[in-house]
Nucleic acid binder design. Structure first.
Length: 942
RNA sequence: GCCCGGAUGGCGAAAUCGGUAUACGCAAGAGACUUAAAAUCUCUCGAUCGAAAGAUCAUGCGGGUUCAAGUCCCGCUCCGGGCACCA
């Protein structure tokens, strides 16, 4: 049996110094704790093979000016995890840095006339101070800033390696072009199809750009998702969908008449079983065939021009009204030899697959709608699988399933079962995989008809897939192909504030990567932004250079990398700080993979996929050993707040900060309106939205820290919602968190103040004497100790496995409520002491400053940040009796207490004997009794 | 449009493996302390009916499975995130 002594520190027996102030002075408490951590260099990590390592990482911030609540939430979650793991005895490394390249610096430069570099660096200084004030335990010696050459030189180096391996290549890609500002726009800079500054109608423009062959890694990126069992299922699903592996057929439609550069149209389909139902082929408006046809067709040319003004975002494409025009060209069906018209349609993307699709209106909703709109034929060739039960062989398929037409609308009739499918409106059944019918009978070519008539009838999807594919292959018209929705990653940006792409364009040698000894290509920072154009695009001293291959005159690439480039490998660089001769060194393999990664769900696909891709690139470069960068992932929800606004006569909204508004409540405390404090007049209540500048509903973390302290802010953030859900800001919730800390402080203060009364000396300890025998405790004291150790168990599980910090805090609150009810006896005093020592450590990861002060006040040496996590005393968890509830027909009717080891028979008898239960089963036959051990008994009566 | 989430008291939420729905906190109300206020402490607090005991109804909506459903299945509604140049 474990003795209670094992769970009490030796210091417990010493008299405790009463040096505690009765007032919770968070300012000095937080300053002192932060100073102590600094002096002890507590969070600076070194590689130590003897200890289990734990690499905890929160997504680094973009230095936009000051921290917002989303950051505070993100970093608090990560810090809680890091501090918890440290107390478990692990060698914890938690770094911080700055994702310092990006568009906002350019916008700020234009608005305030400051250089992006200066703006960014001063933001970093301010935000670093804020992070320190929040008490996050970072190893600042590893701090990195992506806009500095000592960081980005290594991604330039990696890129040149990728160019040599053929993993980086140049191709044309579509961008949003602002014809007035003469610049490329980001999707967010395009508002209602117009440039945000110029108001010009934005065009789609194709320009040559660098791409990375992420599609070469598609299979690995997909397969390795299965190994990421520490990731949320939801994120893995999103990535799998994004990669979008499909098995299909690539096939060719010949073009009826010779057209230069396009002798055949290649399309990809996952539904070759519907091939016999193709009634037209659609190509992108930028497809060479469409461009050709437009030369002699002004209507077509106008349509193509119109398509140039759609935004490049997929969401905009998807909600677009489907439009198209015939090219006046026919394609030859690869099996039947029939002519089908070629159309151009605005929903077909040139950069997606082959830029052409085959259309089967009978079995694809989008094709169906398009066919109805433009009166194109609809040919049903698939009957529902359920119809197959009636069909015994291919010949019968034809005989029993009849195709009829009314005003050009087809109908399938199953003569055996009487079922009918009518193509007058769309039905999702049409798109389901079924049985091929009429797949060959309409063929017009007399010889072909004989050969293939009825060839595919009666086949189900899989057999039809195989036979049609085999037929195409045999005739050289197509082949099976695995396709990915994932496209190669275009990394060129025509912007200034980014990492220069290390390439020299030579008129004779082409695009040449900058040689290793000439890296880094440093981005000039002494620039003036006097327009939206990147200043380096006209900076001759940057551009003019010589070709490293031929030595002739050449020009530097002025495009910069997508900022996802920097964030794709920063997690690895943290492991090798200060190395100026290599991107990474052997320290990377000590720390990697990241054990815990924490960041917003909004990064679930792009950033996390790119980082996984980069990790595989680094692996193939021999720089890291593992396959995946992030072992466990926590995606945290957004921070939202109420919004308030007023609308003026022309409908323009002015948003008011929640701090400047008083909500009005009805007698049930529901919000019915709000008034602006300044003028006392009403404002509109706009609902709860993500904290943002545009809605002016942001709450400044700094103001909260000043008013309540970092611990209160941290506690509120962790308590108000589980980490993966959205968090609603609430001023009174923050006050509640502060109140809890004050209460905790006071409870410990009162406890410490009585130290001399109860625990005077080591030797003559009257308390210790009756403590070591657990069974000497009163039932209430036993219950309190059980609660304490149940709480230790729960908090450990909540912080470790479950990562539900809100329930961990609630459990501690419950415990403190129980302790408050305990009597004043010496034994109770000791239990309280044991409890406060535990509670201080349980809360230390969440509210580390106050925990340090309490730890000291409770007479402990050293810092709680490195104290060992409390252990569970299993013997304290043992119960003599348990409470069970009784249900009759599933409804709660009574409850009683039995010995913990009571047999099933005893429990059943006790349940049946219960007075209230008797009332409900009286005169009825008991059919069944269900006993759920430790929980309930359900008596089922007739 | 496509993919992924979410919805439980007046509010934020809990219920971890299908087993006592509403823990913990906020707000509100009553009381104590105080010259007073703040702070603090104590109590009440899902709805309906009832004097009470208690009963019935409640986890976005409509069905289903089960002895038992907030939890599982089918079909909806509304809200949020991502959609490749915001990070």
């Amino acid at each position: 049996m474990v003795s209670l002594r094992d769970f009490l520190s030796d210091d417990f027996l010493y008299p405790m110094p009463v040096t505690m102030h009765d007032h919770y002075d968070f300012k000095s408490i937080e300053q002192d704790a932060q100073q102590d951590w600094d002096h002890g260099a507590l969070f600076n990590a070194t590689e130590d093979g003897a200890k289990e390592k734990f690499y905890c990482l929160a997504m680094f911030p973009y230095p936009s000016g000051k921290l917002h609540m989303g950051h505070v939430r993100n970093y608090t979650i990560a810090d809680v995890i890091a501090r918890y793991q440290r107390m478990l005895g692990k060698n914890v490394m938690q770094p911080m840095g700055w994702d310092a390249f990006g568009l906002p610096a350019e916008n700020a430069a234009l608005a305030n006339n400051v250089a992006p570099a200066a703006w960014t660096l001063s933001n970093i200084d301010y935000m670093r101070g804020q992070l320190k004030a929040l008490g996050f335990g970072y190893d600042w010696s590893r701090e990195l800033t992506t806009c500095l050459p000592d960081y980005y030189r290594w991604e330039q180096w990696l890129f040149t390696r990728l160019v040599k391996k053929g993993l980086a290549y140049k191709k044309t890609a579509v961008v949003n072009w602002d014809p007035i500002d003469q610049t490329v726009l980001a999707n967010e800079q395009v508002i209602d199809g117009r440039g945000w500054r110029s108001g010009a109608l934005v065009e789609r423009r194709e320009i040559p750009q660098w791409s990375l062959r992420i599609t070469d890694y598609a299979e690995q990126l997909l397969n390795d998702l299965d190994t990421l069992d520490g990731w949320p299922e939801q994120v893995r699903a999103m990535q799998a969908n994004w990669i979008g592996r499909s098995v299909g057929v690539e096939l060719h439609f010949a073009i009826e008449r010779e057209i230069e550069g396009a002798e055949a149209l290649t399309v990809y389909t996952t539904r070759p079983d519907t091939l016999m139902g193709v009634s037209y082929v659609a190509v992108a408006s930028q497809h060479p065939l469409a461009k050709q046809a437009a030369e002699s067709n002004t209507e077509l040319a106008a349509f193509i021009e119109e398509c140039r003004h759609t935004k490049v975002a997929e969401a905009d494409m998807a909600t677009l009204e489907k439009k198209g025009l015939p090219l006046g060209i026919d394609a030859i069906h690869p099996i039947t030899g029939e002519k089908v018209p070629v159309w151009t349609a605005n929903f077909v993307l040139m950069e997606y697959g082959t830029g052409a699709v085959m259309a089967v209106p009978a079995h694809d909703q989008r094709d169906f709608e398009f066919a109805l709109k433009y009166k194109l034929p609809i040919r049903p060739v698939i009957a529902p699988l359920s119809w197959k039960a009636h069909l015994n062989c291919p010949i019968q398929a034809i005989e029993h399933i009849q195709l009829m037409w009314t005003d050009g609308i087809p109908k399938l009739l199953n003569m055996e079962s009487g079922s009918v499918l009518n193509w007058d409106t769309w039905n999702d059944v049409f798109a389901e995989k079924g049985v091929c019918v009429h797949s060959g009978t309409y063929v017009s070519h007399p010889i072909l008809r004989q050969q293939i008539s009825r060839a595919f009838d009666g086949l189900d999807f899989f057999r039809a897939f195989d036979e049609i594919t085999a037929h195409l292959e045999a005739h050289g018209k197509g082949h099976k192909k695995i396709n990915y929705r994932l496209r190669d990653w275009g990394v060129s940006r025509q912007r200034y504030w980014g990492c220069p792409i290390p390439v020299i364009n030579c008129p004779t040698c082409g695009a040449v990567p900058v040689p290793e000894d000439q890296l880094p290509v440093v981005l000039p920072t002494d620039v003036e932004m006097n327009g939206p154009q990147s200043p380096i695009k006209s900076m001759r001293e940057f551009i003019d250079t010589t070709c490293p291959v031929c030595g002739g005159k050449a020009e530097r690439e002025t495009d910069t990398f997508d900022t996802f480039f920097e964030s794709s490998w920063y997690y690895a660089r943290y492991t090798s700080p200060g190395n100026d001769s290599a991107m990474l060194d052997e320290r990377a393999n000590y720390w990697l993979p990241v054990d815990q990664y924490v960041g917003g769900v909004e990064h679930a696909v792009l950033h996390l996929l790119y980082a996984r891709f980069f990790h595989k690139l680094l692996r193939d470069e021999g720089l890291v050993a593992g396959d995946e960068p992030f072992k466990r992932l926590l995606t945290q929800g957004m921070v939202v707040a109420d919004t308030y606004y007023r609308e003026d006569a022309i409908g323009k909204k002015t948003w008011y900060n929640p701090a400047d508004v008083t909500p009005e409540l009805d007698d049930k405390a529901r919000i019915i309106g709000a008034k602006l404090i300044e003028d006392g007049l009403p404002v509109m209540v706009g609902g709860t939205e993500k904290m943002s500048k545009s809605k002016n509903n942001g709450v400044d973390p700094q103001a909260m820290i000043d008013r309540y302290g970092a611990d209160t802010v941290r506690l509120f953030m962790m308590f108000a919602a589980p980490p993966d859900q959205m968090l609603e800001w609430s001023d009174s919730g923050v006050e509640g968190a502060h109140r809890f800390l004050k209460r905790l402080w006071r409870m410990v203060f009162e406890h410490v103040a009585r130290a001399n009364e109860f625990a005077p000396t080591h030797d003559a300890n009257p308390v210790g004497a009756n403590l070591f025998a657990q069974h000497d405790l009163e039932p209430a004291q036993k219950a309190a100790r059980r609660k304490l150790h149940e709480t230790i168990q729960k908090v450990s599980d909540d912080l470790g496995r479950r990562q539900t910090f809100n329930t961990a805090i609630a459990a501690v609150m419950e415990l403190l409520n129980e302790l408050g009810k305990l009597d004043d006896s010496p034994a109770s005093y000791t239990i309280r002491h044991e409890a406060y020592l535990a509670v201080t450590r349980l809360l230390a990861p969440i509210v580390p400053h106050i925990a340090e002060a309490l730890w000291r006040a409770l007479g402990q040496q050293g810092m709680v940040a490195t104290a060992p996590w409390p252990l569970v005393d299993e013997s304290a968890l043992v119960r003599d009796s348990i409470d069970l509830v009784v249900q009759v027909n599933g409804k709660l009717r009574g409850q009683f207490s039995v010995a913990a080891d009571a047999s099933r028979e005893v429990i059943e008898q006790a349940a049946l004997a219960d007075e209230k239960v008797q009332q409900f089963i009286e005169g009825k036959a008991v059919k069944k009794i269900i006993v759920v051990p430790g929980r309930l008994i359900n008596i089922v009566v007739a």
